[in-house]
Nucleic acid binder design. Structure first.
Length: 367
DNA sequence: AATTCGGGGCG
DNA sequence: CGCCCAGAATT
């Protein structure tokens, strides 16, 4: 469907008169809806990013109690901020929020600005956060697109492409902008999301309770399951692990399994590194291997050794310690492998003490 | 355009 | 157990 079609459809049936009364009657009483304080709206939007409402509620209340204003947040110690974020995930959000609070407290000490250009330059503020904060706190007529509104708009207008990528992304932002009413923009934006969360759900939408059912193309044509199109499944490749990194307490082990063998062999045994600040156990293991070998390695990906521009061998790196702890093993990976000898291995770029360690520990033993 | 970043909840 | 979630930054 083209943008013209959106305009036509919108002209025939404005959404706001249908959506706002529904929102007034059915919206959930959430902590961040008690005020239009831009700071509160902002914090809630950042916390809600890729995070469910139920998970955010207790964090939001605790965070606002500790940092009631942007100035309180700006003056806070980063460790305190991160501590209150612990368990929410996506910790970069907290660092960005903190940094942005410092910037705003300095540049706009009296009140948070309603200037989109100012917000757009802040770390952690993309187009969604920008529109959400300014529409809700200041009534600025700016659109929002996130998982819920994207689904609602695509279904109502019967958009058959994928609104999450390419031209579809442009389409859905355009649609979100065109449906905005002149009054109560913030409530309207929230209503789109609330409808997506409570009624227009990804699967089995409750169209019988939907205030937009009468104007919804997907409902009319029975396309709820096709719109938006299901995410294309990631390609699955049959693979078999031929190399893994495991650890148990202070010891980290790199093991190999030749393509035609059943048993694992130890290749290196080295002290496991302490996980640094903000570093996961897996990341620390990857770092150890990287420092030992000079290889570019990532968890779960094929690890290739390139020496003199030629791939000498390839293994996959997985982390059994983590997968065991999670109660399951990862799917295996396979890679064609040409194994180097211990002598060749010793020739890889490592620092002197590490090389000595490698040489000493290269003697394979059964895992 | 594809990846990365986390943890929880739900069908 | 797989998919999804009030996205943004990086590659």
């Amino acid at each position: 469907m083209t943008n013209d079609a959106v305009a036509y459809h919108f002209g025939m049936a404005p959404l706001a008169p249908l959506l706002l009364p529904w929102f007034d009657a059915h919206h959930r009483p959430l902590p961040w809806r008690t005020s239009r304080d831009p700071y509160r709206v902002w914090v809630s939007e950042v916390m809600l990013q890729q995070t469910t409402v139920a998970a955010v509620v207790p964090y939001f209340s605790r965070f606002l109690a500790a940092f009631p204003t942007v100035h309180a947040l700006a003056a806070a110690d980063e460790q305190h901020v991160l501590k209150l974020w612990e368990g929410l995930g996506y910790y970069r959000r907290a660092r960005h929020l903190h940094a942005a609070a410092k910037a705003l407290a300095a540049s706009h000490p009296d009140a948070l600005p309603d200037d989109p250009a100012v917000w757009a330059d802040l770390p952690g503020v993309g187009r969604y956060i920008l529109g959400a904060v300014l529409s809700q706190a200041f009534g600025r007529k700016l659109p929002i697109v996130e998982a819920n509104s994207l689904r609602v708009l695509a279904r109502v207008f019967g958009y058959r492409g994928d609104p999450r990528e390419g031209a579809g992304k442009a389409w859905v932002w355009q649609a979100a902008e065109e449906v905005l009413p002149d009054e109560r923009v913030g409530d309207f934006n929230q209503a789109l999301m609330e409808l997506g969360a409570l009624v227009c759900s990804p699967s089995k939408p409750r169209c019988g309770e939907c205030p937009l059912a009468a104007v919804c193309v997907a409902n009319r044509d029975g396309l709820q399951d096709q719109i938006p199109p299901p995410k294309k499944a990631k390609e699955v490749v049959a693979v078999r692990e031929v190399g893994v990194v495991v650890w148990d307490g202070p010891t980290l082990l790199l093991c190999r399994r030749p393509a035609d063998a059943d048993r694992w062999q130890n290749l290196w045994e080295v002290p496991h590194a302490e996980a640094g600040e903000g570093e996961s156990d897996e990341a620390a293991a990857v770092r150890v291997v990287r420092e030992l070998t000079g290889l570019r390695v990532k968890v779960g990906e094929v690890l290739t050794v390139v020496k003199h521009g030629v791939t000498r061998f390839a293994i996959t790196l997985s982390v059994l310690g983590a997968t065991r702890a999670a109660g399951r093993f990862r799917a295996g990976f396979y890679a064609e492998a040409k194994w180097v000898t211990p002598a060749e291995l010793a020739g890889f770029p490592v620092s002197s003490p590490q090389r000595k360690l490698l040489t000493r520990l290269t003697e394979p033993r059964l895992f």
